[in-house]
Nucleic acid binder design. Structure first.
Lengths: 344, 344
DNA sequence: TACAAAAGTGGAACCGGTTCCACTTGGCCC
DNA sequence: GGGCCAAGTGGAACCGGTTCCACTTTTGTA
């Protein structure tokens, strides 16, 4: 097990001082004579010298690292998001430390402490909704925070990147209304989350615009974890006047919901028109392929990284940015016009 | 933006030297009088002191961090693996820096350099197959490497955690043979990878045991990236004597392959019996639900972390460990007995 | 040619931990 | 009561970078 060369080894071998080597490494920090620069670069190549990140971090007080805090990498949405974030970060020479919360505020708090210890320059997170003081403290300590996908209403001065949740839900609902459906079930995330609220709002708007009375029984807010989606499907279908349309607007519960639909054997789209939030690799492999609201994950990732790095480099004006990107509605074959009382 | 307290602040506030505080933090490094320990802990609590990881790393020469190098977090297998690795690492107080290679050796080399700069204590990776010298150099510099899922034959002294690839392929093949199939297509990863080789080997073994002649035309090794799976499906089905059974043993190409099957409209299992490698969230949502070889991802993650941390703490004997875990065959409804010449 | 400004250089402090080592206490035993 | 060993403590060096500052050498201009 060899020992890696340090900046002093390089300086000695090149016959210059460490200051010069350091300035070769960080050109903006001072001038170096062209000849010496060459010389130093040559020695660096020969020795295979690479600066230790830890030393730089210690001196700089913060790391060229961002934390990514998501619920769960087993969820394809977060996995895909993480993939893009890692990719975008790499193109900026930044590393990503990934932590998962499992939607548990305690684990989230823990993750934030850990990231704080690591002096990360920024954090990109889908917050659980708790830990408000902790997020504030993080920001007070100079860590740049960007919320992605969701937000926390109380934290007004945090940057947010999300999709147009309300608008997307409205469009999905309008699609079903246009097909003649009036009893439309909605499965969302908890009403304590911004996405849950916004999607319900969009759903209501669409119904109210069409003068359809909103039946609270048709709205199910279920937790992100567990099998609440399937249960909601079950109880919606068991309703005396069961819905003919269903919007699953909880990305973490799509799988559970669809599994139940398959188990129960409802005929889609004949008996039930379905639209789900978020395009997964498999939504076009089901029978029939599902209509989806596709979140532009690439855009979410790009904007998040841009924001967090922009803040880290101090080249963004003060004041929170709220970026909302449009989500596409992808029509496939899981919705059909309502056949009036065909079932009775 | 406040400034976080340092160990010297704590020492001053507690009326002791930094040495004492350090010893309170790392009990094994020396004795502290119980009274002072209390005192120090109290001050730490009051000040909200947290040690900077960078300082510790610089001093220790290595970080309490492991690198996870996978192809692509958009692939559910890797995503799930990453999820479990992050989870297991957390329970040991270790952070995970995730890097993706997109199966490109250059990006892989780059990732390794970056991880080296960060002085990570270990790396868990699914190697692309290239960069042999780089992996060796990494190990020479004291970074503990564990390959997961795949391996590189040339690197004999690296720990490996994988499933019983050959055995799994053999069992899948035997399942189809038992149903009467003799023309069985196999889609694997590149033959340059250990998994590709081992799975082909298992497939051949099963066929040879059953005295079925191996038709090389039925074996398709396709790259992990791109749409090779779908293309292979297309050309296999276009064969004059097309297969009645198909094993997709390339996790990254399952989606592409199944998509093509759906597009072409082959009736499964009537016209084609299918088994795919790796259980995804969606394999039971397709029509019909797919028979799968389920990789015990939790086990892979647990063993990988155990190995890498064990090495980091020097509590593992020298010599490479090769851990092979059994993969389950999960029968669902995508295979059926061969109906002799029913199609002709 | 003279002199100010700019370019180039090296020494040393600093970031915040860990650890070695020398030193002071105290308890125990003979 | 003297001597010894262990427990407890603090000072200071060290890890490997960055950066400030003082100093020397150019360069440009009057």
């Amino acid at each position: 097990m060899k020992k890696a060369p340090t900046i002093r080894d390089v300086a000695a071998a090149a016959g210059v001082s460490v200051s010069v080597v350091s300035r070769v490494l960080n050109p903006e920090s001072g001038p170096v004579a062209p000849a010496k620069r060459e010389q130093v670069l040559r020695v660096i190549g020969e020795l295979g010298y690479r600066p230790r990140a830890a030393a730089r971090e210690l001196s700089a007080g913060h790391a060229l690292t961002v934390g990514l805090v998501v619920a769960d990498l087993a969820n394809p949405f977060f996995a895909h998001l993480a993939d893009r974030v890692v990719w975008e970060a790499r193109s900026h020479g930044v590393q990503v430390v990934v932590m998962t919360t499992q939607e548990d505020p305690h684990l989230e708090a823990d993750s934030l402490d850990t990231l704080l210890d690591r002096s990360v320059g920024g954090v990109i997170a889908t917050p659980t909704g708790g830990n408000i003081e902790k997020w504030e403290r993080l920001r007070d300590l100079g860590v740049n925070v960007v919320f992605v996908d969701r937000t926390i209403p109380e934290l007004e001065d945090v940057d947010v990147v999300s999709i147009e949740n309300s608008d997307s839900a409205r469009r999905a609902t309008e699609h079903l209304i246009a097909l003649g459906h009036t009893r439309i079930g909605l499965i969302t995330g908890p009403t304590s989350t911004s996405t849950g609220q916004a999607r319900i709002e969009g759903y209501r708007t669409a119904l109210e615009n069409a003068s359809i009375v909103v039946d609270p029984m048709l709205i199910r807010d279920v937790p992100f974890r567990g099998d609440g989606g399937g249960d909601a499907v079950g109880s919606l279908l068991a309703l005396p006047d069961s819905p003919t349309g269903l919007i699953v607007a909880n990305t973490a519960q799509v799988q559970s919901s669809v599994r139940r639909l398959v188990q129960v054997g409802v005929r889609i789209p004949d008996e039930l028109s379905v639209i789900v939030f978020d395009d997964n690799p498999w939504t076009e492999l089901t029978n029939p392929p599902l209509n989806v609201i596709r979140q532009p994950i690439d855009m979410l990732a790009v904007h998040s990284i841009e924001l967090v790095l922009g803040r880290m480099q101090g080249r963004l004006p003060a004041g929170a940015r709220r970026i909302e990107v449009k989500a596409d509605f992808v029509p496939r074959n899981s919705s059909a016009p309502l056949i009036r009382s065909a079932a009775s």
